[in-house]
Design a protein around this nucleic acid. Sequence first.
DNA 1: TTCTATGTACCGTCTGGACGGTACAGCTCT
DNA 2: AGAGCTGTACCGTCCAGACGGTACATAGAA
Lengths: 179, 179
Amino acid sequence: MSSARDRVLDAYETLLIERGPASATLDAVAAAAGVSKGGLLYHFSSKDALAAGLLDRLRRRSAADAEAMRTAAEGPIDYYLRTSAPGGGSPGGLTRTYLAALRIADGRPGVHDALAVVDADGLAALRTEITDPVLSWLVQLVGDGLYLRTLVGTPLPDDLGVDDLLERLRALLGPPGSA
Amino acid sequence: MSSARDRVLDAYETLLIERGPASATLDAVAAAAGVSKGGLLYHFSSKDALAAGLLDRLRRRSAADAEAMRTAAEGPIDYYLRTSAPGGGSPGGLTRTYLAALRIADGRPGVHDALAVVDADGLAALRTEITDPVLSWLVQLVGDGLYLRTLVGTPLPDDLGVDDLLERLRALLGPPGSA
DNA sequence: TTCTATGTACCGTCTGGACGGTACAGCTCT
DNA sequence: AGAGCTGTACCGTCCAGACGGTACATAGAA
């Protein structure tokens, strides 16, 4: 069984994403994690400490995810776009933690920096497949656009999917030997 | 001078974007707008009404912005990408209101719908310049990626700008007569 | 081997403060 | 006279954080 600490962080993420920061009170997080409020405060001595714990997890997962992108069988582009799209993120994955962190980017110093690190890690990983700086950035932005959709909660259009995007992008990237 | 009602909405947006939803209390909004709390409640009888007012403004501005995209001298693509990028949105523009609305997308019903409308309006406007469904969606996603960057507060890279993106996209869109 | 001590991992309650919202009396333009 | 406010006072609720206590495991001393 996972540690209570991890379960608290999981519950915090879930509440932030599904019901917003206002609902992520210490009581609610503790209840969702199956611990008491006192137990939560044992692991995270304040709400700030809880947020800091989430950012720690974000940084850790960003590094792991960048590595996963580089070693993915389908390649970084495919991996990035699929995990960014609505429904593409796995529990325990970076996407979930990223979306949760976005919800607490409220004047809280350090959040912007942590998110910027994720941005930089992702771009660096994409550049192992696309050397052209503009094109790699462009692909990242497409993925980020999918992220935004996931954040807002808008599903993908019925008639269009990530596959269509990938097909187009491959056509633009591959043939001229421009890589 | 703008009406008190508009100033309240402006202040609400500013607080939401710069200091997050938690700081956007009725007292804080009233103070930032230069009205009393009673004055604020005269225009918006509750916090829910204030949020609803913001969504009204969002829908109105989305329609106006889609029209501006269609009639922009530089064309929809140029307009959309430039206004989405960090620093590209003007006060009184759609981008600011959109980013503010994103911050209150917490279980509040209706926010997702309003944001989805903006999404649809933007895509429809882009399709006046790009008929290919996949490409128009791709361009929208690039713009949305820039939106996300604006939301997070990460500035553009030093060595890359919207111009580079536009140049590449034009090259992909224009020459083969694929439109 | 038993007694005492220390550290870890929690639980449940309480309090002070902030916030949303109400009520109302009064002022100032038009 | 009335619309559009200001300013003050107040109430009920919710929440962060503090606090005191519990259960248990390990360890060293007698």
